Simulated scan of single mutants.
Amino acid sequence: MTTDAAIRQYVSELSTFGYCIVRDALPASTIAALEADLRERFDLTPFGEGGFYGEATKRFGRLLARSRHTEALVRHPVVIAIVETILARWCDCIQLNTTQAIAVHPGAPAQLPHRDQDMWAAAKGEMEYLVNVMWPIDRFTRENGATQVWPHSHGLAALSDDTPEPPVSIEMAPGSALLFLGSTLHAAGFNRSQHVRRGIVIGYALGWLKPYENQWLAYPPHLARSFSPELAALVGYRQHRPNLGNYEGQCPSILLDPGHDNDAPLAAMDALREDQQALVTALIQTREEAR
């Protein structure tokens, strides 16, 4: 199967079931190198507080600042293509919503089933707001509380309190990736094992939403200057038309120019959608004809 055909297949599965699995998306060695970079932070991070995050679970973010290997997950070409295909109906460009490392310790109870789109108080069933990707660091098994998803619980089904099918425990090895929609009901399972289950969540959202993780604080300009242009754009150093997320009326990528003077006056520049630009162009033309 060609890459394009595979992407179409994954998009079809994601749209139909609310989730899909990309097996062997990355070499296990890449995940092992990422784990080595994050190991100390896992050890130092306190357990969560509250029943949702879990008091036997550890979480931390800013992964692009903690390991260069995170970019391989964030910018995985097949994953990005799938996400952009799903979300492109409702935005000009996607953005990184979060990078979060999670360690579910032995005895951690099952998480409250939830839909990640509910972080935004917006209409449900009309659009998808995000796609999340779970990357295992340790093998996910039913015993250690592998992520559970409820098939066909997405989209309009999210408006119902009923679940059409029982949950499925997603068992997979490091290097594979579970993609699920923001409208898909899911939860961490009960870790009945004697081992910690660790994973990485990479989230992508519509470019005009307020992201879960404050990307500009996580990756201020002095850090983002070391990113590739594509990665910097994903973490927010680009505008979303019309002029959303601008800096002094310009694309915030200007802040990544080493020679940029923050005190220098800047001219505000239009960054409009095609329909808006057409209206402006027509108005200007009408005025010129009237002269």
Score class of each variant (00 low, 15 high):
72 A>C: 03
226 S>C: 08
4 D>T: 15
136 P>M: 08
43 D>K: 07
94 I>G: 01
154 H>L: 08
6 A>Y: 03
62 R>S: 14
51 G>D: 15
42 F>T: 01
268 A>C: 11
164 P>K: 00
57 T>Y: 13
57 T>D: 09
205 A>N: 11
128 E>W: 05
288 E>L: 13
257 D>Q: 06
137 I>G: 02
57 T>F: 11
277 Q>A: 14
83 V>H: 02
84 E>F: 02
145 G>Y: 05
202 I>R: 03
19 Y>P: 00
76 H>C: 09
120 W>Q: 02
63 L>N: 05
166 P>E: 07
217 L>P: 05
184 T>D: 04
242 P>H: 07
206 L>E: 05
135 W>N: 01
199 G>Y: 10
185 L>I: 04
168 V>N: 00
137 I>E: 00
138 D>K: 03
234 L>A: 05
165 E>G: 00
137 I>M: 10
82 I>V: 15
14 L>H: 03
22 V>R: 00
23 R>F: 04
30 T>F: 06
204 Y>R: 00
23 R>L: 04
142 R>F: 10
188 A>N: 12
221 P>F: 00
130 L>G: 01
278 A>M: 12
204 Y>H: 06
238 R>I: 02
8 R>K: 15
94 I>L: 05
90 W>F: 09
287 R>M: 12
269 M>I: 14
174 P>W: 11
245 G>T: 05
254 I>H: 02
91 C>L: 03
285 Q>C: 12
17 F>L: 13
147 T>P: 10
142 R>A: 14
68 R>N: 09
49 E>Q: 14
164 P>F: 00
213 E>G: 04
127 M>Q: 15
16 T>G: 02
101 A>R: 09
20 C>I: 06
123 A>Y: 03
11 V>E: 04
251 C>I: 01
189 G>L: 02
133 V>W: 07
92 D>A: 06
156 L>Y: 11
153 S>N: 02
232 A>P: 04
177 A>Q: 01
155 G>F: 01
128 E>H: 05
147 T>Y: 09
218 A>W: 03
271 A>V: 14
165 E>L: 12
209 L>F: 05
63 L>H: 10
186 H>A: 00
154 H>C: 11
110 A>V: 06
124 K>F: 06
193 S>N: 07
125 G>L: 03
186 H>T: 01
24 D>H: 07
209 L>W: 02
14 L>G: 01
290 A>T: 12
279 L>N: 07
152 H>R: 15
79 V>C: 06
100 Q>Y: 09
121 A>R: 13
